[in-house]
Nucleic acid binder design. Structure first.
Length: 139
DNA sequence: GCCAACGTTGGC
DNA sequence: GCCAACGTTGGC
């Protein structure tokens, strides 16, 4: 299983909406590197749900339930989206400031490439971030 | 609101 | 194919 981090501006699409909707298509990615990451996702992969801009924190965890398919919101079929399902919120949101203050996370793609909206997270980093957020696997 | 990073476009 | 101009994203 692979781990990822997906960003959304809460003004456009927030964690609350993700929770309310349950399963939601992750559309609108128009960046080739982000698209590559989306296309590499497998059903069952986990991803952090990150709020950019106003909050700048990891606020929840989602699971990939449908692997890459053509983005219906795109004019052409060359862009990709996946469906993700809300699992549970982070007990304590992990802020960007905390992430940047943690030396073991300085190689995180989120930190190195702030503009990339879909980035991979290594298993080690996933564990560190879960610990920071007090994440408990739901029963 | 400003600015840095980075992607895209278009002239040559 | 190079590079300057411009647009967009996202942190501060």
């Amino acid at each position: 299983m692979a781990y990822w981090l997906v960003k959304s501006e809460p003004d456009a699409f927030s964690w609350d909406e993700q929770v309310a909707n349950g399963v939601e298509p992750w559309t609108g990615v128009r960046n080739h590197q982000a698209k590559k990451n989306l296309a590499a996702m497998k059903a069952g992969d986990r991803a952090f749900f990150y709020h950019s801009n106003v909050q700048r924190a990891i606020v929840g965890v989602v699971e990939v339930v449908r692997e890459g398919y053509p983005d219906p919101t795109a004019e052409t079929d060359k862009w990709v989206c996946v469906d993700v399902k809300a699992i549970a919120p982070m007990p304590t949101p992990v802020t960007l400031a905390q992430i940047k203050a943690e030396p073991t996370l300085e190689s995180l793609a989120l930190v190195r490439q702030s503009r990339l909206s879909v980035c991979p997270v290594s298993a080690e980093h996933w564990q560190i971030l879960c610990d920071m957020g007090g994440w408990q696997e739901p029963a």
